[in-house]
Design a protein around this nucleic acid. Structure first.
Length: 762
DNA sequence: GAGTTTGAAACT
DNA sequence: CAGTTTCAAACTC
């Protein structure tokens, strides 16, 4: 190792010397004396890869984050947005890059870092480089394939496909680069596609490495799909965005238009500038192309770059991180007023490794900063208030993956709408409203309002409300509260419980659950959480055990879901919505203290309640029930179930035997912060039948991953989990601990599959 | 739309 | 932890 490294360093140094004459180089040199260190960094980075000591969970993100953090620190001194910033690192690989727009710089930076070994070295040693580059790619490829546990999931297919492409392109990579340089990298979409493919391949490689490091093949899968999608979108948005897909995608998409235009310009500049003679041109161009691509896809406002974790090693990861970070940045911008915790967190991210973790897709409310509850999950309401932001919000919400990030509170996908946590950051998907918003890529609220909810908005009539709820059940509407005495600051209020602000459609009186009263809301929330950390956690949980069973049995076992605390029904027989279990579409469990349980989704005694027609409920609400079943079926059938709500429904659909029942969680005792999910409205799954895949995915993951003890975990923890980058996100409430970490890991893994499915469609 | 029922949340 | 009260949703008429 040492020997090769040394040689590398010497090579790098030599290349640097070549550029010493360059004014830019001088400038850079003046800025950072560390120049020589760079090589060290690289080496270090490589070594870092070998550090498997870290828990697999954190391994990938964590490592990258650490690396990135270091990396960034050096550069942070200078204004990141400035070219110098990028050039600093870039100088090693390619000074010409400096000419490229600042927006690219980060990307380049990363690229250099990532491909330090490959491209960067190549620059210095072209002949060697090419072969080496190919070799590396192949190796990566191999790794990917060979990666342990390479239980190839659906996504794998995708990945494999790309890899195959890579195989083809890898050899042609250099030539292509040259070609592109001659014509202008982005002269044609075709080229772009090719480039994107290459890029993807590279990313895949990176992912592979990561997987190797982390031993987590799933992650690889997960990433690759994203990358692929993002690339595709960047290249040319084809059809509709994946509704469930993360914000990243959407963001990318939105930026694509401008991005392409910019690309052209930049290309021109690049050509003009990229005059660096010599060996590295080809490589440089490749790298540039790569950068450009990623840049275009990510192409987020430079400001966001600050937050970017810059990861270094693997672009795929980075890209996602970037996207998420973008979200975070936006949130910052938009939500300056939002909870200080999050803000602080986000801001800190830029400098810290955590930045990646910040995936906070959750804080979707950004656009309407006011609308978003800091501690509570995504507040789609906020989004709803600002129609223009819908798209943006939706992205964020989805991203959470953040996922979710969703979404969620202490941490989860801020991970999912869960508690103050990340939850907030995380996919707030859980909240019914959120769910509504996501459906079919159209914000539910939007739909609601558009569909005439406005008419009813100020009407307090319970029926109307009910009607709304029913619609919500269909995914057409969002839930609204009707509080009169609680001021919407108690869990009685569905909105508050879901971690969202009340909106116009609410018929509440003296409502304090509004952005205007953010402080009050937060304070109240904290108070409630202090009493019961799980207060805002999802009420319906699905255990991994159940999940696995479900998979085994045809992957239909929604039954795995159970109400966290169980119901306490005395008269309803758990056949009406008074029963939270029933409402959530899950069977009763040993946790329930209900009497005369007849829950159609599963009785307390373990009797599987099949949807028997004789059920009282059935008789009374046969329609309703059937609707629920249908929903469940749809959810099940439709791709990977991700939404929290959907989960519940799924469960509903196939009531499972009591044996699956979750052990009663001592939720009060559990210290974990409220899960984002809970705050996100996960608690009322039954209402929202339609949810985005992404949501489903997140939810599923959370549930699956969450051990019983974790189930109690706060939403925040969930959020963390959900967001790939969010691993390091420190939950605002600090409740989440190791458990959350675990959950996060699982989320990532499981979430992976969903993405692939999406990608193929395109 | 008004009133009742119900059970979770909150309080003691 | 148990009992009681409060509350708002769910439900009925």
């Amino acid at each position: 190792m040492d020997t090769p490294e040394r040689s590398k360093n010497s090579q790098i140094t030599a290349s640097i010397d070549k550029f010493e004459d360059s004014p830019v180089f001088n400038f850079l040199n003046n800025l950072s004396p560390i120049k020589p260190v760079k090589s060290i960094h690289i080496t270090h980075t490589i070594n870092a890869l070998s550090f498997a000591s870290l828990p697999s969970v954190f391994s990938s993100p964590h490592l990258s984050s650490l690396k990135e953090s270091r990396f960034l620190r050096r550069h942070q001194l200078p204004d990141p947005s400035k070219p110098e910033f990028a050039s600093d690192d870039a100088s090693i690989v390619d000074t010409s890059k400096e000419t490229i727009g600042a927006s690219y710089e980060l990307v380049e930076h990363r690229t250099n870092f990532d491909q330090l070994n490959s491209i960067g070295q190549v620059a210095d040693e072209p002949s060697f480089e090419c072969s080496k580059l190919d070799v590396e790619f192949e190796q990566n490829f191999n790794y990917d394939c060979c990666s342990p546990g390479s239980s190839l999931k659906p996504s794998c297919g995708l990945k494999t496909k790309h890899m195959a492409e890579y195989a083809c392109t890898s050899s042609a990579l250099i030539p292509f680069a040259q070609e592109s340089s001659q014509r202008g990298l982005f002269g044609s979409e075709v080229d772009l596609d090719r480039v994107s493919q290459i890029d993807q391949n590279k990313e895949a490689t990176g992912c592979d490495w990561k997987s190797l490091i982390s031993d987590d093949p799933d992650q690889l899968i997960f990433e690759s799909p994203n990358d692929t999608e993002s690339f595709k979108k960047s290249v040319g948005p084809g059809k509709g965005l994946y509704p469930s897909i993360s914000n990243d995608m959407q963001n990318t998409y939105s930026f694509c238009g401008a991005g392409s235009g910019e690309k052209a310009e930049e290309e021109d500049e690049t050509e003009n500038v990229c005059t660096q003679p010599g060996e590295g041109n080809e490589l440089k161009e490749i790298a540039e192309t790569h950068d450009i691509i990623s840049g275009s896809s990510l192409r987020i406002p430079i400001e966001e770059v600050d937050n970017e974790p810059v990861s270094g090693l693997y672009r795929g990861m980075r890209r996602r991180c970037l996207v998420f970070e973008m979200v975070g940045s936006r949130q910052k911008r938009f939500e300056e007023n939002s909870v200080s915790d999050y803000s602080a967190f986000l801001q800190s991210d830029g400098n810290t490794p955590n930045s990646n973790d910040q995936l906070l897709p959750t804080k979707t409310g950004n656009d309407s900063s006011k609308c978003v509850l800091p501690g509570i999950g995504l507040h789609l309401n906020a989004l709803a208030t600002t129609p223009k932001d819908y798209k943006f919000v939706k992205h964020e919400a989805l991203g959470s993956g953040r996922l979710l990030i969703g979404p969620s509170p202490n941490a989860n996908f801020q991970p999912l709408s869960t508690g103050q946590e990340l939850l907030n950051n995380t996919l707030v998907v859980n909240s019914e409203r959120e769910i509504c918003a996501v459906e079919n890529g159209v914000l539910a609220e939007d739909a609601c309002q558009a569909s005439g909810y406005n008419e009813e908005i100020n009407q307090n009539s319970p029926k109307k409300k009910r009607r709304r709820l029913e619609q919500a059940g269909n995914g057409e509407a969002c839930k609204r509260c009707n509080c009169k005495k609680s001021k919407c600051l108690k869990l009685y209020c569905e909105c508050f419980a879901a971690g969202v602000y009340c909106v116009e459609p609410c018929a509440c009186i003296d409502c304090f659950n509004k952005p205007v009263h953010e402080d009050t809301v937060l304070a109240t929330r904290k108070q409630i959480e202090s009493r019961n950390p799980l207060a805002f956690a999802p009420k319906v949980i699905r255990s991994s055990d159940y999940l696995s069973e479900a998979r085994d049995e045809s992957s239909k076992t929604p039954a795995s879901a159970r109400h966290k605390r169980g119901c306490n029904c005395k008269k309803s027989g758990c056949l009406k919505k008074y029963c939270e279990c029933y409402q959530g579409g899950v069977g009763c469990s040993i946790n329930c203290r209900c009497e005369g349980c007849k829950n159609a989704f599963g009785r307390k005694d373990g009797t599987e309640a099949e949807f028997e027609e004789d059920e009282t409920y059935t008789t009374e609400k046969g329609i309703e029930k059937s609707a629920i079943q249908n929903d469940l079926e749809q959810n099940l059938d439709s791709v990977p179930p991700a939404t929290p709500l959907s989960l519940g429904r799924q469960t509903i659909q196939h009531p499972f035997s009591s044996k699956n029942k979750l052990p009663r969680p001592s939720f009060p005792s559990i210290s974990s912060s409220s899960g984002l999910y809970a705050s996100h409205g996960f608690g009322k799954p039954g209402l929202f039948q339609s949810s985005t895949r992404f949501d489903k995915h997140l939810e599923t993951v959370l549930e699956d991953e969450m051990p019983d003890f974790l189930q109690a975990s706060s939403p925040n923890s969930c959020i963390k989990t959900s967001s790939p980058n969010s691993k390091r996100v420190s939950p605002p409430h600090s409740v989440g601990t190791s458990p959350s970490m675990r959950s996060s890991r699982k989320l990532i893994l499981q979430s992976i599959p969903s993405f692939p499915s999406l990608t193929p469609n395109h």
